[in-house]
Design a protein around this nucleic acid. Structure first.
Lengths: 131, 131
DNA sequence: GTTCGTGCAAACGGTTTGCAACAAT
DNA sequence: ATTGTTGCAAACCGTTTGCACGAAC
């Protein structure tokens, strides 16, 4: 089992207290938080951390491949620690973004698109959660 | 053949000169422009139009179903006059958004997702255009 | 004359940047 | 000493809003 500190070191990131605090939250959530939501959560444990540090840290994590920024909602970027291919469902009532496993859907035809070299793709669904 | 003015009237929109100018550009382009790109283009024909009017007009068109705002790029909304279901390809070099016909891809499994009522979906692809 | 649309400028929310202080090597 | 990291404030960019003027019914 690799600790958060190990994961940062393995990605070439110096594990400062601020970065560890951000990582502990954002790498272990499925909530697809925005940068400001990360800031709010992390301040509970690390009250002196600034917005700038949170933004810089999230961008650093994204550069190093620990996070994938997803432009799924209008006007904000959400951060997803689930970096392997998968799909997304967006709840129209709450705006919540929910992961859908890669194997849950099958897409055909993307390899035979003339003129396009598809490097990655995902299905983005919108609708309502059934209770 | 329905003119732009007819299309606006049919959607319950008063066809002012500014709205016609915006409509002539944005309803006839496949370029997926941002609001500011629309403003730049429209000012060539209608130099006194303000940013606010362009933003208000685009939002009005979207409300009336003439345009669909798409959160496909980070930090901006792009407007798509192609309102029927289709997919999108995003060129990683240029950032350009390109429509992919609905029939070009086949998706299976979205109806049998437990707990999700999928109202709409699209495949979002990223990669490079082949020359 | 009331309603609706426009233009301007200010405000706003999310994000980035410049910089000085600080920590680690 | 050098390099990297933080916090603060200011700047920035895309977008919305308040308001007064003007046009249309």
């Amino acid at each position: 089992m690799s600790t958060i500190v190990d994961r940062l070191r393995n990605s070439g990131i110096q594990p400062t207290p601020q970065r560890i605090a951000v990582a502990e939250f954002v790498l272990n959530t499925a909530a697809h938080p925005t940068a400001d939501e990360v800031w709010t959560h992390v301040r509970a444990r690390c009250p002196t951390i600034s917005r700038a540090t949170v933004y810089n840290t999230l961008n650093l994590f994204a550069e190093k491949g620990l996070l994938k920024p997803q432009p799924l909602r209008e006007g904000v970027v959400v951060f997803d620690p689930h970096v392997k291919p998968h799909h997304h469902f967006i709840d129209e009532d709450t705006g919540k973004v929910i992961d859908v496993p890669w194997e849950a859907l099958r897409v055909r035809g993307e390899k035979s698109l003339e003129g396009f070299e598809v490097r990655e793709y995902q299905v983005v669904m919108r609708g309502k959660r059934r209770k």
